[in-house]
């Protein structure tokens, strides 16, 4: 008999009280429990970063977090980036720069980028590369991904300025 617990989590702003098995990972619950399949499972060992989500605002590997550990916390997945039809600046950056090839690493890349830009809105290229060091892209499209994140940081700033001018 696998033990279960009820946990309270906020995912992309929506609150859930869900029953999970104690040995489910956060990744299991996001994908299979909540149907949020944007978050990918690659290596299931913390190496590839495909399962990156923000937990309490910090980028983490969802495959290395037990769902019960997330009790009481806020989670943001790739599905939480866009506001309705409006893409998040990091998503906009990936579109503009053509930073997507097969797309499997993209959700994790986006969330690592989001985690970086939350703390450091204007990173250097070195800081961007360091922030995605735990995200593997096997299409090896890193140059465009780095460019996309850099452009997202700039566009975040100019977007802010535009709103200010209106």
């Amino acid at each position: 008999m696998v033990k279960k617990r009820e946990i309270a989590v906020s995912v992309n702003g929506a609150r859930y009280a869900i029953e999970v098995r104690i040995n489910d990972t956060l990744l299991d619950v996001l994908r299979d429990g909540l149907g949020l399949t944007g978050t990918k499972e690659g290596c299931a060992a913390g190496d590839c970063g495909a399962c990156t989500v923000l937990l309490g605002g910090k980028a983490v590997n969802a495959c290395l977090v037990l769902a019960v550990e997330a009790d009481g916390a806020g989670v943001m997945t790739v599905e939480g980036l866009a506001q309705g039809e409006e893409l998040d600046p990091v998503q906009q950056g990936f579109v503009q720069e053509g930073a997507v090839q097969c797309g499997f690493c993209t959700p994790g890349m986006l969330m690592s980028a989001k985690g970086l830009l939350r703390e450091n809105p204007c990173p250097t290229e070195t800081e961007v590369r360091r922030a995605i060091a735990g995200n593997l892209c096997r299409c090896t499209g890193y140059v465009r991904i780095v460019r996309a994140i850099m452009s997202a940081s700039a566009s975040a700033v100019s977007g802010h300025d535009l709103r200010g001018e209106r």
Partner: peptide, 9 residues
Amino acid sequence: IGSVQIRNL
């Protein structure tokens, strides 16, 4: 150590 994600955990 590891990556940002690993260091955050």
